[in-house]
Amino acid sequence: MAVRSDGLQTKKRILQACVRLFLENGYHQTTMLQILREAKVSSSSFQNLFHSKDGVLMELVGFMYENQFGMARSVAGEALPPVYVYAAETALQITLTELNENLREIYLEAYTQERVLDYIQRATAKELYRIFGSYQPELTEQDFYELEFGSAGLMRGYMANPCTEDFTLERKLNKFVTLALRGYKVPEDELQKVLTFLAGLDMRSIAQSVMEELFRRLAMHYDFSLDGLLPQG
């Protein structure tokens, strides 16, 4: 039991160090040496738990995606149809990348690495089947997994291009949600209602609150503190 406890404490220190370094320096600029020094762990201890920096990303992405749809439901409200939850959840992801460039890099890396992307696509496919299955009842969950290849590519493309004075956040979210919902055969009149709903939300403020809650849950789950580190929108 002592070995197991030591392993859990080491894992917590590594995750705390990585979150802090990824947000402060960026994913690519954070080196293994920095992680080992910050976490005060040996290379062999790190290898036993995560194998590589990418393994830490996988752990963090898994936690985030377990929580994001639930938080999007609180934004959309229980009374609205599931398609509104999808619009809110994807809009939140895109908006989060506008809050901080290092956070954008973390999301883009998640949508780039093969193993992490596969996790995202498979987890999202289950939600897509639940949300959009009634619009295309002939499709299976496997079909939605394959359709997610395209919507994940759309997501990464919109995340990768920062907002500008002309390409505002509102325009970005409108374009992404329009393409995605049309791809899932949402009727045009319903699509327009979803867009109107989305336009009425202060997405930057919501994303800031959601990010703070996500990191609060992350810190509680792994029993560490990230006080003073969260990016400000």
Score class of each variant (00 low, 15 high):
residue 149 F to L: 14
residue 46 F to S: 01
residue 36 L to R: 04
residue 94 I to S: 02
residue 52 S to M: 04
residue 11 K to Y: 03
residue 181 L to F: 13
residue 155 M to Q: 13
residue 133 G to L: 02
residue 203 M to T: 14
residue 65 Y to N: 09
residue 52 S to A: 11
residue 223 D to L: 10
residue 91 A to E: 01
residue 202 D to F: 04
residue 191 L to H: 06
residue 79 A to C: 05
residue 108 L to N: 09
residue 196 T to Q: 12
residue 149 F to N: 13
residue 13 R to W: 02
residue 136 Q to H: 04
residue 8 L to A: 10
residue 149 F to S: 08
residue 135 Y to D: 01
residue 82 P to Q: 06
residue 146 E to G: 01
residue 28 H to Y: 08
residue 99 L to P: 04
residue 72 A to T: 10
residue 87 A to W: 07
residue 124 T to Q: 13
residue 153 G to Y: 09
residue 96 L to W: 13
residue 151 S to M: 09
residue 44 S to W: 02
residue 134 S to E: 14
residue 91 A to G: 11
residue 116 V to P: 00
residue 174 N to H: 15
residue 201 L to I: 11
residue 130 R to D: 11
residue 46 F to G: 00
residue 44 S to Y: 00
residue 144 F to C: 03
residue 186 V to I: 13
residue 97 T to P: 08
residue 156 R to C: 00
residue 91 A to L: 04
residue 87 A to N: 05
residue 90 T to F: 12
residue 119 Y to V: 06
residue 47 Q to Y: 14
residue 103 L to V: 10
residue 118 D to N: 12
residue 206 I to H: 03
residue 10 T to R: 14
residue 224 F to P: 04
residue 20 R to S: 09
residue 86 Y to V: 15
residue 59 E to L: 04
residue 119 Y to H: 12
residue 151 S to V: 15
residue 6 D to H: 10
residue 103 L to R: 04
residue 139 L to D: 02
residue 169 L to W: 01
residue 131 I to A: 07
residue 77 G to N: 10
residue 32 M to D: 02
residue 9 Q to A: 10
residue 168 T to A: 01
residue 9 Q to H: 06
